[in-house]
Design a protein around this nucleic acid. Structure first.
Length: 779
DNA sequence: AAATCTTCGTTTTTT
DNA sequence: ACGAAGATTT
């Protein structure tokens, strides 16, 4: 291996073996790149930060850089490590590199942080204190385990839910803080924190007993092992001479630590990202990683890619104007040579269903001029997909739901996988607890509580506790448990060598899962059986193509690949997805629906939703970036829409206000289509948004907070929208008033002036009343 | 221990 | 509205 023996961590790029410029101009690898892109490709040594704006050819840079390293610098493919954020991105990158390089691409370590983490952990299992067949727990398993811990620690107060502890643990792990870590102890100042610490400690013990790791562990554990074992660290760092990271703005502290360790020998770390597209801070991503990169790697080169190749000038102008409202950003100036193109189409719908139908109708028209695969619809929350799906079906438009409710989270699939996991990992507590009751085999709560208690008492894994218990006396429940344990032991035969689907088939038969569903006979059970068959075909497919065709290999992949989408590659469909899943994708025609207060920005970022507080500005900025990401996916035309009413929780339609972000669009690039009434005039649109008070649309108590009561369905839909933002009167639409009898309510409509104005007020829990203004007080 | 009834939260985003 | 989780009954 021809490595530089004593590399300077921050070596200046002068000593790069660069081919002669003359040949470089002709190099087909560089031919299609602009000067900045080229520089990013050929600056191979030392730390490099590429700030790549939306649509600036980021993926192209990464793939060409890899190709450059291999084909021109003669770096062996296996010395390259490329990390992405999603499986989709990883797959796409592999494909594109393969396109440039052919088979050599196969040897690159390319994958998501988490899959790389698993791969490392497999090799480091010994040092990490894990059995080779360790299980990977998803969020669901994690929460269940926490539930057990809470029971064991006698935490039943309803105030603390397993999920909040889970998020505490995740946050700790994202920062590489173990339960005993002094820094964590220092941070814990509330009573919740100290409780959470106890839960965390116990949870870790249980996870270790079960030979299980959670998502956070997949990063944190490798970091710890490498930090504590310099030799192992060196081994990896020497092996991976070039490390590349995509979507760097989404990395968390632990991930950055991993990168530092992996590049500690050579410092050849190239990170690509865009602070304006940071949309995962809720998951621990730290924008500081990208903003502070030059400080952490002082010799780092910084290259900005600011030329946009993707969108029309109008789309670029609109999205740029929106994101410019954010205070905390690096600041790039994107430009394009593309023409203005169509204006942004903004549609105002009367109801969520009308909105969805409008989308469908637009798509019908587009069908004449483009392929369906070039059209996508984006929404903030998965819940919105439902209305859209219905419309798509009604209009007979083929569609593909990306993400959403996941295949591997369905009950029957989780049942089957629990069995599989238990076979591979005898200590898998969560798997055991699920398998033992699916299908029902006469083992109930009392028995399980006993097993759980024993496990907690001894600090051992649940299956082990069961064994222990069986050694004791024999009641009727014991017989059933024994039968179950024997069955498991018998099924365990040969699974290490057999292919995944062979074992899978056996599992479905012997466990009785399939039979139980067959006996059920309901329509629902039929679908579940089909799902199980699908699981088998996924296993078969895995066995054919993956390097580890066994069940263990399959389980590993399944834990990390949540999407069901990769099966349907059959093209001609409209894509439906959340705005978060859009990152890295592009479409000729994009629709962003439900651009409403409470949805985008989401209520959780807004003060009104909970406790009448102030908006969380950071969260609102992230929502704005999310909107920015979604907008910039469009190449030719961007459609935005909001509805005046929306059905939440399947209940009555509630009024819904246009998002504050819409006011931040430059009017000259937007074309409003509002069948229900003029929009531009009534909103005072184009003026700068006001901070402080709600934006004039009367959203401060958040439609979402108003579950009780409910607004009459018809009133909001049939009448002209009144977006009165000119008046500061408490009686203005959206204002809040107090009535002696009815309490506090929200003004829905207002006719007339001053104390004689006739108000339509909605009182939560009471209903809608028409009242003359002098009978109410401002609230 | 299983079947049935009741309540409750769900809807932020994902590895 | 709807499904999951819990409480209650059989």
């Amino acid at each position: 291996m021809s490595m530089k023996p004593q590399p300077d961590l921050f070596a200046p790029p002068e000593d790069v073996p660069v081919p002669a410029p003359a040949s470089r101009d002709d190099d087909p690898l560089l031919a299609k790149l602009n000067p900045e892109q080229r520089r990013a490709v050929v600056t191979t040594e030392g730390p490099l930060l590429v700030l790549a704006g939306a649509g600036s050819g980021k993926t192209r840079v990464i793939t060409h850089r890899i190709a450059w390293l291999i084909a021109r610098q003669h770096v062996p493919a296996w010395q390259i490590l490329a990390m992405t954020f999603t499986n989709k991105a990883a797959g796409e990158m592999r494909e594109r590199v393969a396109h440039l390089l052919g088979d050599a691409a196969g040897d690159i370590w390319l994958g998501t942080f988490h899959s790389i983490g698993v791969k490392m952990l497999r090799q480091l299992a010994g040092l990490a204190g894990l059995q080779p067949g360790f299980s990977i727990y998803d969020t669901d398993d994690q929460v269940r385990m926490i539930g057990r811990v809470m029971k064991a620690l006698n935490i039943n107060d309803d105030h603390h839910k397993p999920k909040s502890f889970a998020s505490f643990i995740d946050r700790a792990k994202n920062r590489c803080l173990l339960p005993g870590d002094q820094r964590l102890l220092d941070l814990a100042d509330s009573t919740f924190d100290s409780l959470a610490l106890k839960v965390y400690e116990r949870y870790e013990a249980d996870m270790r007993a079960a030979d299980a790791v959670d998502f956070g562990d997949l990063i944190m554990r490798p970091v710890q092992v490498l930090a504590q074992n310099p030799e192992a660290c060196q081994q990896f760092a020497r092996r991976f001479r070039y490390v590349l990271v995509d979507e760097f703005q989404d990395t968390n502290h632990a991930q950055f630590e991993l990168l530092k360790l992996l590049t500690s020998v050579h410092g050849n770390l190239c990170v690509v990202g865009d602070d304006d597209q940071s949309i995962y801070s809720w998951r621990g991503a730290e924008v500081g990683n990208i903003l502070g990169f030059p400080k952490i790697f002082p010799g780092a080169q910084v290259i900005k890619l600011e030329r946009n190749y993707r969108s029309t000038a109008n789309i670029l102008a609109a999205s740029t104007a929106v994101v410019a409202h954010n205070a905390t950003r690096h600041g790039k100036v994107l430009w394009t040579e593309a023409g203005a193109g169509d204006k942004i189409k903004l549609h105002v719908a009367a109801s969520d269903r009308d909105e969805a139908d409008w989308v469908a109708r637009q798509i019908e028209q587009l069908r004449g001029i483009t392929r369906l695969s070039e059209i996508a619809v984006f929404y903030r929350t998965n819940a919105l997909s439902r209305v859209l799906e219905e419309s798509m079906r009604r209009f007979r438009l083929p569609y593909a739901l990306i993400g959403g409710q996941r295949f591997y989270e369905r009950a029957e699939i989780k049942d089957a996988l629990s069995w599989c996991r238990l076979l591979v990992n005898p200590n898998d507590s969560a798997g055991w607890l699920r398998a033992v009751v699916s299908p029902k085999r006469g083992i109930g709560k009392v028995t399980l509580d006993a097993v759980n208690d024993l496990a907690a008492q001894r600090g051992i894994a649940v299956p082990e506790a069961c064994e222990l218990m069986l050694r004791g006396g024999g009641t009727k429940a014991h017989e059933k448990l024994k039968t179950f344990m024997h069955l498991v032991a018998k099924m365990r035969d040969g699974i290490e060598t057999q292919k995944a689907h062979v074992v899978g088939k056996m599992v479905l038969e012997q466990s009785g899962l399939r039979e139980a569903l067959k006996e059920d006979g309901s329509l629902e059970a039929e679908g579940r059986l089909e799902n199980l068959d699908q699981l088998l075909s996924a296993m078969a497919e895995h066995a054919e193509s993956a390097e580890d065709p066994t069940l263990r290999g399959f389980l590993e992949q399944v834990a990390l690949v949540a999407d069901t989408d990769k099966l349907g590659d059959d093209g001609e469909k409209v894509s439906l997805m959340t705005m978060h899943s859009t990152k890295g994708l592009e479409y000729d025609y994009a629709f962003v629906v439900g651009v409403e207060e409470g949805l985008l920005p989401h209520a959780n970022a807004l003060g009104g939703a909970r406790g009448e507080g102030v908006d969380d500005e950071h969260a609102v900025e992230e929502e704005r970036r999310l909107f920015y990401v979604a907008m910039t996916r469009a190449r030719k035309r961007l459609h935005l829409s909001h509805s005046r009413t929306r059905r939440r929780f399947g209940g009555e339609p509630m009024p819904s206000d246009p998002s504050r972000f819409l006011q931040q669009l430059p009017p000259e690039v937007v074309e409003v289509d509002s069948p229900g009434g003029a929009w531009r005039q009534t909103t005072g649109w184009g003026q700068t948004a006001q901070a402080g008070r709600s934006n004039g649309f009367g959203v401060r108590n958040g439609a979402w907070a108003q579950r009780v009561g409910g607004m009459p369905a018809k009133a909001a839909r049939d009448e002209e929208p009144v977006y009165d933002r000119s008046s500061d009167s408490p009686y203005a639409v959206g204002g809040r008033v107090r009535h002696k009898q009815f309490g506090i309510g929200k003004v829905m409509e207002s006719e007339g002036q001053g104390s004689e104005a006739r108000l339509t007020v909605q009182f939560p829990g009471v209903g809608v009343k028409r009242i003359v203004a002098r009978y109410v007080d401002p609230a």
